[in-house]
Amino acid sequence: MQAEVRFDHVTCMFGSVIAVDDVTFDIAEGEFFTLLGPSGSGKTTCLRMVAGFQYPTSGHVYIHGKDDTRLPPFERDVNTVFQDYALFPHMSVADNVAYGLMVRGVGKKARRKQAEEMLELVRLGGYGHRRPIELSGGQRQRVALARALINRPRVLLLDEPLGALDQKLREEMQVELKELQREVGITFVFVTHDQTEALSMSDRLAVFNKGRVEQIGTPQEVYDRPLTRFVASFVGASNIVEGPLAERLFGNSQPVSIRPEKIVLSRDGEGIAATIREVNFIGAATRYRIAVDGVEEAALLVTSPNVLTGDNAFAVGTPVRLAWAKGTTQALK
């Protein structure tokens, strides 16, 4: 199958700083694809290379099979939702949304009609005559979406679009965005540094670190089978077990990742003897820091859900047993 967006050995340098380092991957048509990574990891530069705001130093960017590496943004069949929304402050909401049509020479009447339809789609029907400054952050976000979608681009790029919203609105918009993507059937390329956002929204995600792609896969693959130390610790929390502790738990010193919630604690029974060092109540769960008996210098993080109410947690100093299901651990490179 032909890829909608293809990065082919793309490198991008700013002076002597390598922002994107020999990156190759494909994004399939109709996919919700996330570029996840900390700030400065190269994810936004990659997005800008798809949009055409940045040309790679070397390598090729293909959009729908065509080499668009050095095509200016106004000739690409790609639209962007900017982090700061970048609405035109001197235009009404309707004119903002219709801008892409105006540029293409669509008549005023058709423009107005399509803009209103687009605003309906993002649940802002009747807001067309307002100015961007009169809208809330969430509403501006939707105007930016409507404006970017009106040209029916092949690919929609979203540059941390939810970053400026508060937690509750953010979660609502995550659901809405996902629904919108299903509705319009356009390929979404989504940039974020928020791993929960990436896991909950994406069909597939690419984890960026220092200009390189560390891993690409479905959210489950990336979470359950992290290939590198960075992915294990950036996507969700993880215990990276190595050295003497790995020797004690797994019989060899190769680093292994095990998620805190996969470890089951019991007062007695099967498992590795350990002692509670620290107890931390976090609402839905309790987080423990646990030292395995005999390997005191390394600690393991364990979260166990608070199934019962009341004070059922283990106290500091309690001897416990640790166990985990087969296949919940992952050897790291």
Partner: peptide
Amino acid sequence: TVTDASADLGA
């Protein structure tokens, strides 16, 4: 970003 957005939309 505002001028970027204009170019992005085809201007």
